[in-house]
């Protein structure tokens, strides 16, 4: 997989998840995000998941963990663009994404 596409806008690091993540790429992505946060020292991290069609318990865990790790590095994460169907599915499954804030 290519490095994750990130964009620094002002003090904000923006990252868009554009591919269907399988387990190994998800873990790579997590490491890449942490490195980018360390390198660019943003005020905040925005993860755009509007192209993500499935959030199962594995990806949910990965996103929560990433936000928590990023917070440990002093940066807050905002997840943007969660599709309505994904919000429904997460709620019904009893999955709560923690560690970050949300924005439409």
């Amino acid at each position: 997989m290519d490095k994750v596409p990130t964009l620094k806008m002002g003090d904000t690091l923006i990252l868009t998840i554009q591919v269907e993540l399988h387990d190994k790429t998800a873990i790579r992505l997590q490491e890449d995000i942490l490195e980018r946060v360390y390198d660019t020292k943003p005020q905040g991290l925005v993860i755009d998941v509007s192209a993500v069609g499935v959030v199962d318990s594995f990806l949910g865990r990965m996103l929560s963990d990433t936000a928590t790790m990023v917070r440990t590095m002093g940066v807050e994460t905002v997840l943007v663009g969660i599709q309505p169907e994904i919000a429904i599915t997460l709620q019904e499954m009893g999955l709560e994404l923690k560690g970050g804030a949300f924005s439409p």
């Binding site: 499935v54 199962d56 169907e85 994904i86 599915t89």
Partner: peptide, 27 residues
């Protein structure tokens, strides 16, 4: 699974439920 759900006429929410369930079981 998503393709078949779509073909059978399931709505977007059900497609996502089915696809997520398949993801859990496959994993």
């Amino acid at each position: 699974a998503r393709e078949m759900a779509k073909e059978l006429g399931f709505g977007l929410a059900d497609q996502t439920r089915i696809t997520t369930a398949v993801s859990e079981l496959s994993r």
